[in-house]
């Protein structure tokens, strides 16, 4: 479980997140909405542990451990993983090698994993070097699959992905988050649901991801403040019709 309590964050001396309260239970996936510049990526980077995002108040608890001041690598080892929107290119490190890095001490069949996201042709290329938007997403998903994290942060996983690959990306995320429950002989669906432990937090603008991932909750981040927590479909409809400002106002009133 991830618990964020009254979190306040500064970037370059400017407060960018205020009074953030958020709770993601085991098996839950939340969708994070919000206009450009509202602080969505900052929240993800803060959860991941990027030190330039300075926590000036509140705390973050993951799996019962206070991670507020934990370095990035410890958080990763504890089970937090992230799919970046614009990851850096690292020259001389091949994608194949990167997948091994993600797997850590676990054995991993890189070719088999890569096949799942149609990425076999990119394994011998330097990671992210000249990758298109969609290729970056698939590379990030491949790395997350190898990492086997328990809490996965996705920064706009469907942006830049062509129509052909969008279902591939969507279904892969659903699988990672154990949202792809299927009828099975050995296990009733209800039990599968109960045994889910993976947690997700997904930033989306378009909401396409909702067609593939049955998200449990939606959150709207507006001007550094988490302003709403509701059914993600409902939020998406509201934003679509009324815009963020109106959507946030409506929620505040009803709250």
């Amino acid at each position: 479980m991830l618990i964020i309590e009254d979190l306040q964050v500064e970037l370059g001396g400017k407060t960018i997140l205020r009074h953030i309260d958020l709770e993601i239970k085991e098996g839950e996936t939340h969708i994070l909405f919000g206009p450009n510049g509202s602080g969505k990526t900052s929240l993800l980077m803060t959860i991941m542990g990027y030190p330039q995002y300075k926590v000036t108040g509140g705390k973050m608890i993951f799996k019962g451990e206070d991670i507020t001041c934990m370095p990035i690598d410890r958080r990763s080892q504890l089970g937090i993983g992230m799919s970046y929107q614009r990851p850096p290119t690292i020259h001389g490190i091949k994608t194949r090698q990167m997948v091994h890095i993600c797997a850590g001490k676990q054995e991993v069949n890189v070719d088999e994993l890569a096949q799942k996201v149609n990425f076999g042709h990119f394994l011998e290329r330097d990671v992210n070097a000249g990758f298109s938007g969609g290729e970056i997403k698939r590379s990030e998903l491949l790395q997350l699959m190898a990492q086997n994290a328990d809490l996965m942060l996705f920064d706009e996983p469907e942006s830049g992905v062509d129509m052909e690959n969008i279902s591939l990306v969507g279904n892969t995320i659903a699988k990672l988050l154990e949202k792809d429950i299927q009828r099975s002989e050995n296990k009733p669906m209800i039990q599968q649901k109960r045994e889910r432990s993976k947690m997700g937090l997904i930033i989306t603008h378009t909401g396409y991801i909702l067609d593939y991932v049955a998200a449990d909750k939606g959150q709207v981040l507006y001007d550094g403040v988490l302003s709403c927590s509701s059914n993600p479909r409902e939020i998406l409809n509201c934003i679509g019709h009324e815009g963020y400002e109106e959507c946030v106002r409506c929620i505040i009133r009803t709250n």
């Binding site: 370095p71 690598d73 958080r75 690292i90 990492q147």
Partner: peptide, 12 residues
């Protein structure tokens, strides 16, 4: 780049 690799589990 260092942070990126750290978020994949490597130490600094």
């Amino acid at each position: 780049e260092i942070f990126y690799l750290m978020s994949r589990g490597m130490s600094e």
